[in-house]
Design a protein around this nucleic acid. Structure first.
Lengths: 127, 127
DNA sequence: CAGGATCCGCAGGGATACTG
DNA sequence: CAGTATCCCTGCGGATCCTG
């Protein structure tokens, strides 16, 4: 089989280059991205507040998630020059829309989870 | 409608039982799950048709994704006892709803991707 | 307190070969 | 054609330490 040079030049992330919207979608639907958006949908949070709210997230992943969401324009970061440091995170107008959509999806999933679990039992029982 | 963050969390293994909805959500929002749902939203597909339609997915991941979606009750699998084998995949009524939601989210992201990319440029330029 | 820097384990996922 | 089985590896994400 012949392989084009172009394919070899950019082996990684070909899809990302061709379809950047996939990357954006993965940011908002990522494991912690979903939870952060839903949390910030209710109100503004500080870093460690958010860390407690989204229990289980590591500092690293929370920082990374927030940076992605800020870079994409979904979250606004406001650092107050005080000691000790204080940083507030809130949704941008774009973030509010995104949070409504992912929140809607999450809520729909929650409502139908019992059905899904029952379906799984039937599926698993059939083998 | 408000969605609580607590109900969606499952950092350790135990939380899968405490919060199974998170698992369901990850199935439909997974990298390939989203694309499969969107593809099947337009029409019924066969396995290798779907593989060509969802460019970049490996056989393994497509099979795994389809099994998850079938087990959760979003996709119906119909195998025809012919040679060569022929298997059709289509959305269930529940899957249609799910596909509408993830599709809505995906299309919203697509519409706002130019804005996001522009925002990223500004963000990156600021450092 | 808000995060950067580092190390590292392990499972998610790709490539390939094989089967019914 | 529609998968399953196998090998293999990277990169996600957790833990820990450090700084402003």
């Amino acid at each position: 089989m012949k392989v084009s040079v172009e394919q070899l030049q950019h082996p990684p992330d070909v899809n990302d280059r061709m379809c950047p919207s996939r990357g954006v979608l993965e940011h908002v639907t990522s494991r912690w991205g979903v939870l952060v958006l839903i949390a910030l949908a209710e109100r503004e949070y500080r870093f460690s507040e958010l860390r407690r709210r989204v229990a289980g997230v590591s500092e690293k992943m929370l920082a990374q998630t927030l940076q992605n969401l800020e870079r994409d324009g979904f979250v606004h970061r406001e650092a107050h020059p005080v000691i000790p440091p204080r940083v507030d995170y809130r949704l941008t107008p774009l973030g509010v829309e995104a949070a409504e959509l992912v929140g809607g999806l999450a809520h729909w999933v929650e409502r139908h989870t019992p059905t899904v679990l029952a379906t799984r039992l039937v599926y698993d029982a059939a083998r």
